[in-house]
């Protein structure tokens, strides 16, 4: 259990940031899995009242506050229609409905959870991550960057473009984290992301480069799928072996590419 002496719900992100940087404090995201950790802090900061649960459609973008729960991808009329329901479909099978009602966008992205399906999906969309102090990152840069100091994820912005998308995952029980997940988008370029490796999702740059300027056909897709499974590093964990992930990755990438062909 996480133990603390004070629970503060700051009214602004600025207040939250000041608390975070001046005290032995942590941001409590949605609250999921907190019972699993075992540490003591002085202050728990809950951003629930910090006006970060907005969903705004601005021109060709949607900005989503970090305290928006991921159930909004199912329920909010703007988010559920984004990319023809792509994010709705992805989030709808994340854990349970109850959990999705507390898991937040910020609470998923900021810790860079390897098991996240949503991160993999966002990686193939034009997504930007806004941190209160460190500023704007593309989601792929954000995942690669080690922040030098504590920060607060304020919002993400997803641009609406004309992309075909596909999301694939493998689980044994449907009610589980994915053993491996794959997201693909196709506009002018093809983007391929692999997550649950079990480390955090990453893009398959080499394969994306290989596909640059090529028309997708079954032959090329097969080759690309193989290439992704060679390119992406995998590891063992409690759910599956490295070897299994590698094999399944090839199958899932193939399926995803066939879907966007």
């Amino acid at each position: 259990m996480i133990k603390f002496k004070e629970y503060i719900k700051p009214k602004t992100i600025e207040d939250a940031y000041n608390l975070l940087t001046t005290k032995n404090a942590e941001i409590i995201g949605g609250g999921a899995f907190l019972r699993l950790s075992n540490r003591k802090i002085d202050v728990a900061i809950d951003l629930i009242d910090a006006n970060l649960n907005f969903i705004n459609e601005i021109n060709d973008s949607v900005e989503i506050g970090s305290m928006v729960t991921i159930s909004e991808f199912e329920e909010n009329p703007v988010l559920s229609k984004l990319y023809n329901g792509f994010l709705k479909n992805v989030s709808e099978t994340v854990l349970s409905f109850q959990m999705r009602n507390i898991i937040t966008v910020g609470g998923t992205l900021y810790p860079k959870y390897g098991f996240s399906d949503l991160i993999t999906a966002l990686l193939v969309l034009p997504t930007e991550v806004y941190l209160y102090k460190s500023g704007k990152f593309s989601v792929e840069d954000f995942l690669k960057t080690r922040l030098e100091h504590k920060d607060i994820l304020a919002k993400i912005v997803i641009k609406k473009e004309n992309l075909k998308t596909s999301f694939q995952y493998i689980r044994n029980s449907e009610y589980d984290f994915s053993i491996l997940n794959v997201a693909v988008s196709k506009g002018n370029e093809v983007k391929i992301a692999v997550g649950g490796r079990p480390a955090v999702a990453q893009l398959a740059y080499k394969t994306m480069q290989f596909l640059h300027g090529k028309d997708l056909n079954e032959e090329i897709i097969k080759e690309a799928a193989k290439m992704v499974s060679e390119e992406i590093p995998f590891a063992d964990d409690i759910k599956a072996s490295k070897e299994y992930r590698k094999k399944v990755c090839e199958a899932l990438v193939k399926r995803a590419l066939l879907e966007v062909m």
């Binding site: 629970y7 719900k9 409590i28 609250g31 999921a32 907190l34 019972r35 109850q98 959990m99 507390i102």
Partner: peptide
């Protein structure tokens, strides 16, 4: 279960189902 997985502690928070084992009372 303590991990938010079993759903037994589900209550409505402002009308929406949530696992009460994964929320601090102060919230």
């Amino acid at each position: 279960c303590d991990t938010g997985m079993c759903g037994i502690c589900t209550v409505l928070l402002d009308g929406k189902p949530v696992p009460s084992c994964s929320i601090f009372a102060a919230r």
